[in-house]
């Protein structure tokens, strides 16, 4: 039984739906020629992005890969803002210059990737150094794909975090694929927990398709880091259900697809919610309809945005809400984000 209350469980569910639904809409917009690049989908592994980021607090930082849209949404980026960015419209919260699927949004505590992988962890170590130098109880969550973990930068980053004892949690997403190559052609390890041993990092393995397991484990790592007990590593076992960056390529292992489809993170979580009595099938349908309408409206608003992205983007808009704004929807303001802004 999870420690989360009904409202929090609904938020988890809503973010799983938002992640999948938003990616589906981005894919449709790409097929229609409105978006120039196919979305890097997290189909089948949404629970790792959502569950991990859900363990963070205001003021923490997260480094998602391109395949953790869920983490970015949990941090408070509105779907409309994501769409605007992909459509290269003005009004993007992160400017016109960044790649659409590589958000760096300091105000949300989001450090996006560049092109080559494995490097974000090195940068997150510096963010964590900053926390430590100011004695702030803040924490960094760095996602690391199984493919990305094979880079030299990832090795340097894991070791640096460990030897410095930084407040960092590394969530290694073992999704079976690295771009178009199976992960057993990328690494000879069979138990990915072994990775942690080389760095002296405490580690645990979770079912990456169980959003509550991911959340609970991430919370342990985050709390540990916040107490000053240093970094740790989670290996989330999951499966990427689509090709690297499009839905047209020949994907891949039919048997595996079928097996993992039965472990879909959203349907699995729905069963949990119904079985534990937090939700009923009809209440879930209402939630799904709510998310569908939210995304329809977001697409409509984004497509209606004025501009081509060539002009300077406007200051990020805070979506008006009648209910009290949850912290994830408020722009965060910290001294670290202002002291060095200039020009």
């Amino acid at each position: 039984m999870s420690s989360l209350n009904r409202h929090q469980l609904r938020e988890l569910y809503r973010h799983l739906l938002l992640t999948r639904g938003l990616e589906e809409r981005l894919e449709r917009l790409w097929h229609d020629g409105r978006v120039s690049a196919p979305p890097i989908r997290s189909l089948g592994q949404e629970a790792t992005g959502v569950g991990g980021a859900f363990a963070l607090r205001e003021g923490d930082w997260v480094a998602p890969s391109s395949r953790e849209l869920g983490a970015v949404l949990v941090r408070g980026l509105a779907p409309r803002e994501v769409l605007v960015r992909h459509l290269s419209m003005s009004g993007s919260p992160v400017g016109s210059s960044d790649q659409a699927d590589r958000f760096t949004a300091p105000a949300l505590g989001v450090l996006g990737p560049t092109g080559p992988l494995g490097t974000q962890l090195c940068v997150m170590n510096g963010v964590a150094l900053g926390f430590r130098l100011r004695a702030e109880p803040r924490v960094c969550l760095a996602y690391l794909g199984d493919g990305a973990s094979r880079t030299g930068a990832a090795h340097e980053g894991l070791n640096f975090a460990a030897v410095q004892g930084l407040p960092v949690l590394v969530l290694l997403v073992h999704n079976g694929w690295a771009s178009g190559t199976r992960s057993d052609r990328q690494a000879a390890v069979t138990d990915w927990l072994d990775v942690a041993g080389a760095y002296g990092l405490p580690a645990e393995s979770v079912d990456g398709n169980d959003v509550l397991q991911v959340y609970d484990s991430a919370l342990r790592g985050v709390q540990r880091a916040r107490r000053g007990e240093g970094p740790s590593l989670i290996v989330a076992e999951t499966y990427r259900m689509q090709a690297h960056a499009d839905d047209t390529g020949a994907q891949h292992d039919a048997e595996a697809l079928e097996a993992w489809a039965r472990r879909d993170p959203i349907t699995g979580f729905e069963s949990y919610l119904v079985e534990t009595g937090f939700e009923s099938r009809p209440s879930l349908a209402v939630l799904r309809e709510g998310v569908r309408r939210e995304l329809d409206l977001a697409v409509e608003e984004a497509l209606g945005s004025v501009g081509t992205g060539l002009e300077k983007p406007a200051v990020p808009a805070v979506p008006g809400e009648s209910e009290p704004t949850p912290w994830t929807r408020r722009p965060m303001v910290y001294p670290d984000l202002q002291t060095h802004e200039s020009g």
């Binding site: 090195c122 510096g126 964590a128 150094l129 900053g130 030897v163």
Partner: peptide, 28 residues
């Protein structure tokens, strides 16, 4: 030792950490 950090032989980690700390308002 907080402001004079002996690092591993890891130039990517050194520069990466400098970038992250710079994000936090430091001048590494």
């Amino acid at each position: 030792p907080d402001r004079v950090i002996d690092t591993p032989i890891s130039e990517a980690a050194i520069v990466g950490a400098a970038i992250g700390a710079a994000h936090m308002g430091f001048k590494p």
